[in-house]
Design a protein around this nucleic acid. Structure first.
Lengths: 345, 345
DNA sequence: TTGTAGGCGTTATCAG
DNA sequence: CTGATAACGCCTACAA
């Protein structure tokens, strides 16, 4: 037999509470959320609260948002929430948003840049107060222009925006010092004796990958130990990309002493490729990454990397978005963390 | 000088569009979203759409929700979005929610069970269509009762609920077969020659940990290789818990051949503790985990574990919550994945 | 301190 | 097919 429950569930409203308490709608409203004005007499307040409890009243946030003219939520756009890089940032965003009394609407592009634009529009319809956009972009003028247009539309409608990673002019951004971090890493590796370097990079048009690569390369140039031809291989910005990149590198007869994978997840893939090829890390080849993903801190050999305070980046971006004033750009320096995957040579 | 921008940003409304197009509000509404009734004449429809585009109109989802009587969002409660276990589930939830046309509101308890209750209330105020609650609970009758009450209140108000992990009577749940998975693992390990077992478990009142432990223990009992006294140590359900648990185990003179850490993150911590103590894995002691966290698949030695399809669990939970009919319980079997951390003995 | 009434942006019912 | 108009649930001047 089919369920005969009425689909229509009448939620109790503030009017119900007011009637139950024998007061006006306005009084009920004021008693329950303490309006900006004066208080409600203690006696009535009690009556109202009691009535609300009795009726299991739950204020309708949507109605409140309409009446007040502003919602209580914030949008977050990531590429893949299952990626530890993004989930760390998300942790920071949820924390900061909650501190500001906002709830966060999570959207995940699944690596399709075009979806960023539609998510911005979705979040704008939702009338979120702010949008935090995370993740590196490609060097794609059209795509970037579309995203910027969507974001500007959102701002024009009164919303605020903050980005993590790649800046977009006129919008607050938490910028990770990718070039400088990679350069520091290069200097450190050179300092402990490495001379023949190679890089497993992401796609050529991936801005974050590009910054890390060029910072690394320029530092090596200055040190007089430039990257050899064929010492850079481009691949996916993922674990599998790292794996394939390293495999390719090992196939070439370059024989680098140390490989810099432009992020930790790729570095882990690279190490797996070395292992599968019978090449020992760090005895035969040293490996370094970038990000210092906490979930990966216990891999062996422990990975030398550049620490990026991702949770903090999420917090900062949220605060930037919510804060007053002109768009700001906050820089987050990376810190080289030396571990066993790159022993002194 | 202070910014002199007017704080009040007037968003263009549907009335504006109607006026601009020279039609009634009703017609504009129908043209823009195709109401349940009949269509709008092609000519007018064009005019309206053009006007909307010209005015950069963005429908207000909140107002729509009010008018339609239902929102377009779904709530997700996790303990810690930075934990790969939860982020994998979250990936499944976002995917399924999007497929259903819903956006997800993410809340993170930061491991405080009491906050689950307040998040349920928050999400209820938001009038989300469904709530997905993930994560193991403690054996805490009062806390569980409070959560159940909040959830029932939400259901009574017309919302639907699905849980991942520990079931709650009367609510749809995606149950992971923890006992059976752990038992399978025990049998496998026994089958390849292990006899002296130990377990690094979570807190004694942690239900998931408890299930995994007892499944493991009972299988060993049946096999005639019961866990020795002192072969079980309780610790935190985290990486550090795993580390401390293993350290404690190594301090005891038991000398287990293989240690089962009740989740992968703990197993990684356990392996780190062994390493720090100069104990080799798997030569001196083998280690196995549970969950098969994908980010951890490349650690060395590769971890033997019980695979739980977490992304799928998220998808399933969302579908269960959104699906019609009575509450259901879906079981997800774990699959033992044998890797190098537990070589045949 | 408390109540009245108008409005927030849409949808939906009911006539033309 | 199109247009008034009443909800939806709540907040907030404005009055009393």
């Amino acid at each position: 037999m089919e369920s005969l429950y009425p689909e229509q569930v009448r939620t109790t409203t503030l009017s119900d509470v007011a009637r139950e308490a024998g007061v006006s709608l306005a009084t009920a409203s004021r008693a329950i959320n303490g309006s900006t004005n004066r208080t409600v007499g203690p006696a009535l307040r009690e009556r109202v609260l009691a009535a609300a409890a009795r009726l299991h009243y739950s204020p309708d946030a949507n109605a409140q948002a309409m009446a007040r003219g502003r919602t209580t939520s914030l949008g977050l756009i990531v590429h893949d929430i299952a990626d530890p890089y993004f989930s760390a940032i998300a942790a920071g965003v949820t924390r900061a948003a909650e501190a500001a009394g906002l709830s966060v609407v999570l959207t995940s592009t699944e690596h399709d840049p075009a979806r960023e634009v539609s998510f911005v529009e979705l979040l704008r319809r939702q009338r979120v107060r702010a949008i935090v956009v995370t993740g590196g972009r490609r060097d794609d003028p059209e795509g970037t222009a579309a995203l910027r247009a969507a974001l500007e539309g959102f701002q024009a409608a009164g919303g605020s925006v903050a980005l993590v990673s790649q800046p977009l002019e006129g919008m607050s951004t938490v910028v990770v010092d990718n070039r400088e971090g990679a350069a520091d890493l290069a200097r450190h590796l050179h300092g402990i004796g490495y001379r023949r370097f190679a890089v497993v990079a992401g796609p050529v048009d991936h801005l974050t990958s590009r910054d890390r690569l060029s910072g690394f390369r320029e530092a090596l140039d200055e040190l007089g130990a430039p990257l050899a031809d064929g010492a850079v291989v481009h691949s996916g910005f993922t674990r599998d990309g790292g794996y394939e990149g390293m495999a390719e590198l090992l196939r070439r007869d370059a024989g680098p002493e140390v490989v810099f994978a432009v992020n930790d997840v790729m570095a882990v893939g690279a190490m797996a490729a070395a292992r599968d090829a019978g090449v020992s890390v760090p005895d035969d080849v040293a490996v370094a990454g970038f990000d210092d993903i906490s979930t990966l801190r216990d891999i062996t050999p422990a990975l030398t990397t550049v620490r990026v305070p991702l949770v903090e980046a999420g917090v900062l971006a949220t605060e930037l978005a919510l804060g007053p004033g002109e768009p700001r750009e906050v820089h987050l320096a990376g810190e080289v963390v030396v571990r066993e995957s790159t022993p002194a040579r």
